[in-house]
Design a protein around this nucleic acid. Structure first.
Lengths: 347, 347
DNA sequence: ACCTCCATCCAAACCGCTTTGGATTTGGCC
DNA sequence: GGCCAAATCCAAAGCGGTTTGGATGGAGGT
């Protein structure tokens, strides 16, 4: 027994009108400090809190942000998605917004957005994992639903708000590091390249090679969901080939761990016989810290991106006339134990 | 330009009352098939969808389920949590419910629940990761907010609805498997044992040993957040000790991967020199399948648990008088490549 | 004493839907 | 033809807030 008071009852108990009570609680100026105090005390005593549905209806704002995630969201996205959510969630709750997540069948994604708009379930949404061929932003514009992209939509950079890390640059720098260490046969284990982020990473890799007059060996480039076995299996295969790579550049810690497993199983040592650089999204359950991190990595916190994306979106919502805004985050290049000079001319 | 019609406009266009239109769309019987057809056609044409806030206010149901997760949710919970969410989310959307997730400061968890109740933000909640000392269920009872526990609250099994896997039994079986293979020095790398699930797993382990007259060696039992380094570091330390274990029993795939890394670094082979059994929550980004899975494991799908938990909760909500219900899931014991007979009297 | 101007407070409309309690029409049956 | 029940449909009352457009009363100015 603790709840059940509504505005009407509260105002009756106070011998005040609902108007005054509402204004007192919402900090409007046309109510004396004394009554305001009286009101908030009584409200606290009776445990009054405004019914959110009623408030939303009256104000016309849903006070919620939607995230629609297709059921078969690609495996590698999963943990990253959660970390992003955690960051965004903090921002939302700090601003009194709810976060609503819709898990939908892949072919119902568009429906989900339409429903959010037509039923007024949320004041805005976040687009996750933009692909090379992306259309969601068009739909959302048409639905007049504010949104922020986590990542970038190729060809729509100017007309959309987004937050992204500099994928191309990060992988370019990582590749250069390996080149500086004398590696020339570098393998790339990348995410699905129909995704924009993976596409950009590959370009960074290729451009760095090209700048030194090297051409990437297609046999050393793989692209798939970034699972652990993906890393292990491909690394194993490459290491056992006639012309194995001396270094690996990997798009995710999860797959990097797989690569490390393969390296171990081949009796090699990472950082000596083989070098590994991975991108590190700073996932909390895969810490790669310590004085000297296990993996040399390009690091960029997805959680932070989530916080910022949410802030961008909330700004857009409270300021609908504003121009598109974007944030470009640079990854840190952090030296760990998994890189070293290329072994001298192997057998 | 596509939305903006409300019930009033729709009914005017049809020369019908709002009542009739509402009833037609919601499938009530007191409207002729002909008008129903006319109504739904016009609704489709004008892109009408009921404003969810208004509907919620009128019906008094939030049509949403809340998940509050403390900001510092223990690291190992993270990916598991997401998988659970994915499962639950499917059930919700299939039933027209929204899922709202609140990320809150640890010391505001109680507030979060109170708000959900007093502001009527959700019709029910899921309790995640019950601890040995658990109090949330009392608060929720007092708030009169339906809930389902993912896991079990010790001492409140009868009076709460929950879904849990048989942790004790799973770890008992796993331990017996190792014992049958001749292992006697078995290490346990467990989750935080102030959590109910970890506590139960330890008991399963200890009881299996005790049944064969063995007492667990405290030096071989570790408990912490289930990160990858936790597995690697502890395994490394144990393997290098004077009296190393011949087998590892591990609470999470993530840490198991760390153990595998340590095993590799020590020049040993899993399944031959050292045996590994891990619990496998069937996380989608850590597949452990294939003809012969890499890890021998006790497997139980968290996603499935999420689906079922959501179903239990929705049932409770639509049927408030019902008695507490619970589901006990048994983990499969699956033989993979990481276990084998104990090596004959090692050096 | 009279008037203006604030400072407070209030009654009532409104947000968009569901639902109650009829009103009206239709059809079957004696 | 008259009557009753079933089939349709509707006006209006909520749901619980916010917000508009005053009303009221006391202070200050002349």
């Amino acid at each position: 027994m603790s709840n059940g008071v509504n505005l009407k009852e509260l105002s009756q108990r106070l011998n005040l009108s609902q108007t005054t009570v509402s204004r007192a609680l919402n900090g409007y100026p046309e109510v004396s400090e004394e009554t305001r105090k009286r009101v908030s005390e009584m409200a606290a005593k009776l445990g009054y809190a405004p019914n959110s549905q009623a408030r939303r209806l009256a104000t016309g704002r849903a006070m919620a942000i939607g995230h629609v995630i297709p059921r078969s969201i690609h495996e590698m996205m999963n943990p990253i998605f959660l970390e992003f959510i955690a960051g965004a969630g903090e921002t939302y709750s700090r601003h009194g917004y709810d976060m609503i997540i819709s898990v939908v069948d892949d072919d119902h994604e568009e429906d989900a957005y339409r429903q959010i708009a037509s039923r007024k379930k949320a004041d805005g949404v976040i687009i996750h994992g933009p692909a090379n061929e992306e259309h969601r932003h068009k739909l959302l514009k048409q639905l007049n639903l504010p949104f922020v992209v986590h990542g970038r939509i190729p060809g729509a950079e100017q007309e959309t708000s987004w937050i992204d890390m500099n994928n191309r640059r990060a992988f370019e720098r990582a590749t250069n590091l390996l080149l500086d260490l004398g590696h020339t046969r570098i393998a790339l284990l990348n995410g699905l390249e129909h995704m924009d982020f993976a596409n950009r990473r590959r370009r960074g890799f290729e451009e760095a090679l090209a700048a030194r007059g090297l051409t990437p060996d297609p046999a050393l480039m793989r692209s798939a969901d970034m699972t652990e076995p993906f890393g292990c299996d491909n690394a194993m295969e490459m290491l056992k080939s006639d012309n194995p790579p001396t270094a690996f550049l990997i798009s995710s810690m999860i797959s990097a761990i797989g690569v490390a497993r393969a390296v171990g199983q081949c009796g090699l040592t990472a950082g000596k016989d083989v070098s590994i650089i991975t991108h590190d999204d700073a996932l909390s359950f895969l810490p790669n810290s310590g004085e000297v991190p296990i993996f040399t990595c390009t690091r960029s916190s997805v959680r932070y991106a989530g916080e910022k994306a949410a802030e961008l979106l909330l700004n857009m919502i409270s300021n609908p006339a504003s121009k598109p805004v974007s944030m470009h985050l640079d990854a840190e290049l952090i030296i760990g134990q998994s890189t070293g000079p290329a072994p001298a001319a192997s057998r």
